[in-house]
């Protein structure tokens, strides 16, 4: 059971959160301008690294805020937590 530091509520059990997949995949500004291949890339392609990964979480059972986490997918170590819309901190 990971302990995820909600930027608002502080550390809470993983069970209080919903996972939201890879962070920083913006909804395209003008989907109609994209080719089918470009749109498919937005819909279906995500990174799957072993190691640090910037991903979105929502504190579903708490303050209901979405935020970003850099988590090591191999060890579950959380390197950084930052608010939605924020820049991913530099390394790791």
């Amino acid at each position: 059971m990971m302990l995820i530091p909600c930027p608002w509520c502080g550390p809470r059990d993983e069970a209080e959160f919903h996972y939201g997949g890879q962070a920083h995949v913006a909804y395209p500004a003008d989907p109609a301008a994209l080719s089918d291949a470009e749109w498919a890339r937005y819909l279906f392609f995500r990174d799957n690294p072993k190691g640090p990964f910037a991903e979105r979480w929502s504190h579903a059972a708490g303050c209901r805020r979405w935020f970003n986490v850099v988590r090591d997918t191999a060890t579950n170590e959380i390197h950084a937590v930052y608010r939605a819309g924020g820049q991913r901190p530099v390394s790791p």
């Binding site: 913006a26 979105r56 929502s58 209901r64 805020r65 979405w66 939605a84």
Partner: peptide
């Protein structure tokens, strides 16, 4: 509700 909050908070703040 989560869906609406997700779009509001992450795409259209």
């Amino acid at each position: 509700l989560d869906w609406m909050e997700e779009w509001l908070q992450t795409e259209w703040p």
